[in-house]
């Protein structure tokens, strides 16, 4: 058992490869999380324009990308787009797929946050001469983000986990590199390493999330 899963020799040999994967996972997360947050914010701001011409297409967009499995979306972009004459590397496909998929999730969270801010806040801001955008930026959004912080964090956790999907389209992130190492060494130890690293990477976030959720509950009481 220990030979198979916790082989020290293999760990030593695989470490540089797995480390490269870890850095790429961190890099990928640092790109797709802000991208998703940005896309989500735009969707939420558009949703705050309650015009039917904006609302219905927006709802269709968000529903579509929330219902569409991200793995299928990713494979479709990677394997399908070349047939449309557009060849993107795996990294670009992951960025686009995450922008579409996680952006829709972040968008719904931001929208709930904006809805949670009482209308009187906007009225007070507008009554002092702030424009609609200024009221949104200085009064509504700071409160909205604070109100949905646990949900934003929870979604971010999911997004970081989902970066492992990149391995399917040859993005050299943690899981991909671990599988490379596994296939070279004929031993599953590198996969175990990847699992442990994922855990160590995300566990602090999970702890932070629990604390935020507990505080939110205490605040409600």
């Amino acid at each position: 058992m220990i030979e198979a899963f916790f082989n020290i020799e293999i760990m030593k040999a695989a470490w540089p490869i797995v480390l490269t994967g870890l850095w790429n996972t961190i890099l990928l997360s640092l790109i797709v999380v802000p991208l998703g947050l940005f896309g989500g914010l735009i969707l939420a701001l558009l949703a705050s324009i309650r015009h039917p011409l904006v609302r219905w297409p927006l709802m269709a967009w968000v529903d579509f990308f929330r219902a569409f499995p991200p793995l299928v979306l990713l494979v479709l972009l990677f394997a399908g787009l070349p047939f449309a004459g557009l060849e993107l590397d795996g990294f670009a496909c992951v960025a686009i797929a995450f922008f579409l998929n996680t952006g829709s999730y972040y968008g719904e969270i931001f929208r709930a946050g904006i809805d949670s801010v009482p209308g009187g806040q906007v009225e007070a801001a507008r009554s002092t001469g702030l424009s609609r955008m200024q009221a949104m930026r200085y009064v509504v959004l700071p409160q909205a983000v604070r109100n949905v912080m646990p949900d934003l964090l929870s979604n971010t956790l999911e997004v970081v986990k989902l970066t492992s999907l990149g391995s399917v389209v040859a993005v050299p992130e943690l899981l991909y590199e671990a599988r490379q190492a596994q296939s070279i060494t004929y031993n599953p130890t590198p996969i175990v390493m990847a699992a442990v690293i994922y855990f160590l990477l995300l566990w602090p976030l999970v702890r932070l999330l629990s604390r935020l959720e507990n505080r939110a509950l205490a605040g409600r009481r």
């Binding site: 009482p118 806040q121 007070a124 801001a125 009554s127 002092t128 001469g129 702030l130 009064v139």
Partner: peptide, 17 residues
């Protein structure tokens, strides 16, 4: 927005930020 600067308003529920 410019016009509203000249008209102060105080609300029942304060509406402080």
């Amino acid at each position: 927005n410019h016009a509203r600067r000249r008209i102060g308003m105080v609300f029942q529920s304060f509406n402080l930020y």
